[in-house]
């Protein structure tokens, strides 16, 4: 028996919106720790890892560890039946091939029961090593989103360079080139507006913008984004989900050969 109840149902809608352009199908792993997912895009260039801890739910019951294979696109369709202020309950029984979503309006005057078919998904879990990163940039998530959107109108790749001067995002395309530099700014009164750069070594890495732009679909989940970089390693773009966990995107770099 698996049952979880999330009063802030819109959060699940936003989480699925943040994944659906990257991943087609995924196994959701259910355990006493929480509700989690690890999945790659179809070309195996990017990986998303989601964690929603059990303590973050109003009710969380998971009698045994298991995985539920779901089509993310179908899940997004089902969640369209929920209003933003609805309470969402997800239920599944042992051995069944369906999952039930229940959406309750806050005043309890409307209840929707939606049943979705589960799928068998053959996917491998990748071991993500704990790494010390050479540079970590924390910045407003909306700022990062708008930088990626702006640069993707000019070019296909973004080069992220972290130095003592700040973090520079640059691109080049047929019509020209552009770069945007953000300097450390920790003096702001609002912590969500701060840009903080922790640098052990200067780093320069290049990534495909189409993936990074997809990651910024998670912007509404967190006011800040953390970008962790090391030479010749995948970047980690992390959005914390308050009181619950995180969504982390990993993207393999483009390396000169």
């Amino acid at each position: 028996m698996f049952e979880l109840r999330l009063v802030q149902g819109s959060l699940l809608k936003r989480v699925i919106d943040a994944i659906k352009d990257l991943v087609n199908d995924a196994n959701f792993d259910c355990s006493s720790t929480g509700f989690s997912l690890q999945a790659m895009d179809s070309s195996h260039v990017a990986l998303v890892a989601l964690l929603l801890r059990s303590e973050g739910f109003e009710h969380f019951r998971c009698d045994r560890t298991f995985s539920m294979g779901m089509s993310i696109a179908n899940m997004a369709k089902m969640l369209k039946c929920a209003s933003n202020d609805d309470i969402i309950t997800i239920k599944a029984d042992d051995g069944t091939d369906t999952v039930t979503f229940m959406f309750e309006s806050p005043s309890q005057d409307k209840i929707s029961d939606i049943e979705m078919k589960l799928m068998d998904i053959d996917s491998d879990h990748l071991g993500i090593p704990d790494a010390e990163y050479e540079a970590i940039v924390r910045m407003p998530s909306t700022e990062f989103g708008s930088i990626c959107t702006s640069l993707s109108t000019i070019g296909d790749t973004v080069t992220i360079a972290v130095s003592k001067q700040g973090v520079t995002f640059s691109t080049k395309g047929d019509i020209g080139s552009g770069n945007i530099t953000c300097r450390q700014n920790s003096s702001t009164e609002k912590p969500e507006e701060a840009t903080i750069i922790e640098m052990k070594e200067p780093v320069v890495l290049t990534f495909a913008l189409k993936y990074i732009t997809t990651f910024t679909k998670a912007t509404s989940l967190s006011s800040q984004v953390t970008i962790s970089l090391s030479s010749d390693m995948p970047v980690v773009v992390e959005y914390k989900i308050a009181e619950m966990g995180h969504i982390r995107y990993y993207l393999a770099p483009k390396i000169e050969e």
Partner: peptide, 14 residues
């Protein structure tokens, strides 16, 4: 030439 690597080149099966 910049070559796009796969994530599986960096992280292996758990």
């Amino acid at each position: 030439v910049n070559k796009q690597h796969q994530i599986t080149a960096f992280f292996t099966k758990a």
